[in-house]
Design a protein around this nucleic acid. Structure first.
Length: 476
DNA sequence: ATGTAC
């Protein structure tokens, strides 16, 4: 990216002033190397987001930002309903409430490695993965509505996991304000037998070793130490979220003129928060959030069943579950006054600072756990939300490495079989139904997640707590 | 990300 149009606010914060139809500036958090490597399209897309009605303070991009549909992935934008603010389907993304949850195992890596192959094989049998993968559940229409209203809470009530899990999930496991009646029959149909499945792309279930701890105090509060084994699950709302995104995007394009909205880009389709369409989308999107929370909860149950066979003594309590594709109503201080904002995070993780009431009480003093998924075969990170991050970008941080090349380019460069063999030599067991999928997600197809996380830490968005390296990865 | 194109 050409940096000439940016003012360097600090070493890790770059601001492009509001010009033309932009209502607010663009702010990107990154070091200079990441900025230079970043796609020019990030600035273009973030600039057009800055033109949307009711946007507050700035259109933000995280250090892992890259080109997305309408909004950049790694984009954060907040809107005020009282100022004509909008909600945008493209601002949330198609995989609504895609996110990461991380579980303790109580095991040390040496114990795990003795059963590594057995565990990998058992997980790959038990965890449905891949395009169009289906699970054991078949939801009736009534059950579907209950799931879309109840989220992870619904799953726990059905016997998937423990009540104690719920406290460690955003929103207590249940997103309020969901409107199952706003979710189309087709979206529900697509989801009917997809509960408890990973899906494809960069979604995975990964057994990981804590390789490094950067902040002992926060790590202790989170209950992680070097050589501990944890399991991370990265997935979202599958076909349902995608269908909702597709349908509402189309509706928002059609309805924009009637709301007096001139779209700077068709892909930025949006509707006023205070409109029938805006309210409908929010209701459907919240239902999709519940779908994703329930999905990760069911996968957690399947994971625990496998561990019960391989490591009967192990217990897998939840550390935390956080989404990175959402629009949420939050209170934030802007220019000295508290405002109620609709915060879009697309490929950006919520990262609330210490003391925030929405953080589980046991973790509150340390700040919210921020779970950063690496690409397959590379590191993942646990960070903690900071006080400073609350001021910088509404308590948000990066969500992963971000692609460095297209899927197509990756399949030209690598073969899935070779990638799998290479990783196995490094002690990382990959289990996937699709060698093509493995090639698309080859470690080299992604940016360096360490650089992204370091930039987020240096910028003050969140604080580095621990690094996780993969031992077993079940992917779609 | 996605019944990887309606």
């Amino acid at each position: 990216m050409d940096l000439s149009g940016f003012e360097r606010i600090s070493e890790f914060e770059w601001q492009a002033p509001a010009t033309g139809a932009m209502r607010v500036p663009v702010v990107i958090f990154a070091d200079e190397a990441l900025m230079r490597a970043m796609d020019e399209k990030v600035r273009e897309q973030a600039s057009r987001v800055a033109m949307l009605p009711g946007i507050v303070r700035a259109s933000y991009a995280m250090p892992d930002a890259h080109w997305g549909y309408g909004f950049p992935i790694g984009g954060v934008a907040a809107f005020d309903a009282d100022e004509g603010g909008v909600v945008s389907a493209g601002g949330v993304g198609f995989d609504i409430s895609c996110g990461v949850r991380c579980l303790h195992t109580g095991l040390k890596s040496a114990e795990l490695l003795r059963q590594q192959v057995r565990l990998a094989d058992a997980l790959s049998r038990a965890i449905p993965a891949g395009v169009g993968s289906t699970g054991e559940l078949r939801l009736s229409a009534a059950e579907m509505d209950d799931m879309l209203t109840g989220g992870a809470r619904w799953a726990v009530e059905r016997g998937y996991g423990d009540a104690a899990d719920l406290e460690r999930v955003e929103e207590g496991g249940q997103m309020k304000g969901a409107m199952p009646q706003q979710v189309s029959v087709q979206a529900k149909q697509r989801q009917r037998d997809e509960m408890g499945t990973l899906g494809s792309g960069n979604h995975y279930l990964e057994v990981q070793r804590v390789a490094e701890v950067y902040d002992e105090k926060i790590a202790a509060a989170y209950g992680v130490a070097v050589d501990d084994v944890v399991v991370s699950i990265h997935c979202g709302s599958r076909g349902l979220g995608h269908q909702i995104g597709t349908e509402f995007l189309r509706q928002m394009v059609v309805a924009a003129p009637s709301h007096g909205i001139v779209l700077p880009d068709r892909e930025l389709a949006c509707a006023p928060i205070e409109s029938e369409l805006g309210r409908s989308y929010l209701g459907a999107m919240r239902a999709a959030i519940n779908c994703a929370l329930a999905n990760r909860q069911i996968l957690t149950h399947l994971l625990r069943q496998v561990f019960a066979q391989v490591f009967p003594q192990a217990r897998l309590p939840l550390l935390y579950d956080v989404s990175h594709n959402t629009c949420k109503v939050e209170e934030h201080e802007v220019d000295g006054r508290q405002r109620r904002l609709y915060v879009h995070r697309k490929g950006a993780t919520r990262a609330f600072g210490p003391g925030h009431p929405d953080i589980p009480s046991a973790l509150r003093a340390a700040g919210q756990p921020v779970l950063i998924g690496g690409s397959m075969g590379t590191s993942s990170f646990i960070l903690a939300g900071t006080e400073r991050g609350m001021k910088l970008a509404y308590g948000s941080a990066c969500h992963g490495a971000g692609r460095a090349m297209s899927r197509h380019e990756a399949t030209r460069r690598w073969h899935g079989r070779e990638v799998t063999d290479e990783l196995a030599e490094r002690g990382i067991l990959i289990r996937s139904p699709s060698f093509r999928g493995v090639a698309e997600e080859a470690p080299g197809a992604y940016k360096d997640v360490s650089a992204v996380v370091d930039a987020a830490d240096s910028a003050g968005l969140a604080r580095k707590v621990a690094k996780l390296v993969p031992l077993v990865c079940v992917k779609g």
